[in-house]
Write a protein that binds this DNA or RNA. Structure first.
Lengths: 220, 220
DNA sequence: TCAAAAAGTGAATCGTGCTTCACAAAACTT
DNA sequence: AAGTTTTGTGAAGCACGATTCACTTTTTGA
């Protein structure tokens, strides 16, 4: 009588769930939330629309999950940077560079998740995520102020400004594929320098710490 | 045979058009584009939904007009500041303060117009408007660099960052009515200082130019 | 192998909100 | 004042896309 899912089945279901999340994420990255209808997600994931509702109770909750997962990964990367060696200014520079360069590769994903509103539920999650990013920068700022690297300042405001600054710099001139890698690099540097000056960093750190090439090896 | 509208009629029509624009603007300010349905606009303006379409061909065009008008006013204010006396740093400070303090009073209007996407048509207009704001700041930056007040920098990037910084600082901590005037003022100052440091302003200008109180006389 | 349960399907349903339209009222012309 | 045109009405039409549901297929337990 009582039922039990075989491990194989269990696995397949989990895989389906992942495929749905992945498909949703991909569609958002390609064309924003606007393009990510349930039917499209289903097609992309190789399932029927109805099946989606076996895994997620509503579109809103699906996208909240997508958002949370994406942001979790992003925050993790930033945390690794903070835990690493270097001055507060270097940490800040690395965080901004890292975030911006990744966002430039999937512009709509970053845009949708940071800026594009949707159902109130997703919106609420979006705001929480923005705050999470803000918190990371707040920690860098507090650290830098304690170390005497940065002058005292309203860390809440500065953190929000930093998030806003690089966000706008990304989505403003967003003619994505058109810009060359070279000019993207220049943009990243400009934004980084803006943020460093903004927090009152006394000495701008070296452009790129050449040691330990973290992940993405750009410009071959 | 040929028809001519009496001046009185002409006037009434123009007034209606204005009332529609005003109603739309008000609704956006109150609850974002989400709340501003055609039927609501019509009700607010004291007309029927059908009548709206005698004045505007579509919802999208109506809101493009609303957006353009709002931004035109805003830019005008910034232009007056730029034309006035003072250093580039003072101009920048005044622009940021002016924009931010006005935005804090109608947070959703600022939000909707700077950040909230809608139909592609409105979206396009929104991006144009952002660029217009960016251009104002670009001019301040170029001026400041020429005068030797600011170090050389990527003015496009910096201008975008400034717009982004104060936008985020405004819409991020959007618990609008709750914050006291006092804390709002502190926020404005923090954001202003952030932007001044960010562009590398050598000397932070006096907190508030006491002479010639421009418009808004806050804190009585 | 068969019956019960779960998973999957995709067309129909439903809600929302823009847009149209058949008609009414008002404004102009003669 | 009668006829013509413009303006106004608001309910109906329509498009879009999330959600549901009657049904099929697959999996599981005996």
């Amino acid at each position: 009588m009582a039922y039990k899912r075989s491990p194989l089945m269990e696995e397949r279901l989990a895989a389906n769930r992942q495929r749905i999340l992945q498909a949703a994420r991909q569609l958002v990255a390609a064309g924003g939330l606007r393009e990510a209808q349930i039917s499209a997600v289903a097609a992309e994931a190789g399932l029927s629309t109805g099946a989606i509702y076996r895994y997620f109770p509503s579109k809103a909750e699906l996208f909240v999950d997508v958002l949370n997962e994406a942001v979790r990964q992003e925050i993790e990367i930033l945390d690794v940077i903070l835990a690493g060696p270097g001055s507060a200014a270097e940490h800040l520079a690395q965080c901004v560079e890292s975030f911006v360069s990744r966002a430039l590769r999937g512009p709509n994903l970053a845009y949708a998740f940071i800026a594009e509103p949707a159902e109130p539920e997703v919106d609420a999650a979006r705001i929480r995520c923005r705050m999470m990013f803000g918190d990371v920068f707040k920690r860098v700022l507090q650290d830098g102020i304690e170390r005497g690297e940065f002058p005292p300042q309203n860390v809440d405001a500065s953190a929000a400004c930093i998030v806003g600054a690089y966000t706008e710099a990304l989505v403003g001139p967003i003619a994505p594929a058109t810009r060359s890698v070279r000019s993207q690099d220049r943009l990243i540097e400009s934004v980084r320098d803006f943020c460093l000056r903004a927090v009152g960093a006394t000495a701008v750190p070296p452009a790129k710490p050449p040691a330990r090439p973290r992940r993405r090896a750009r410009t071959a």
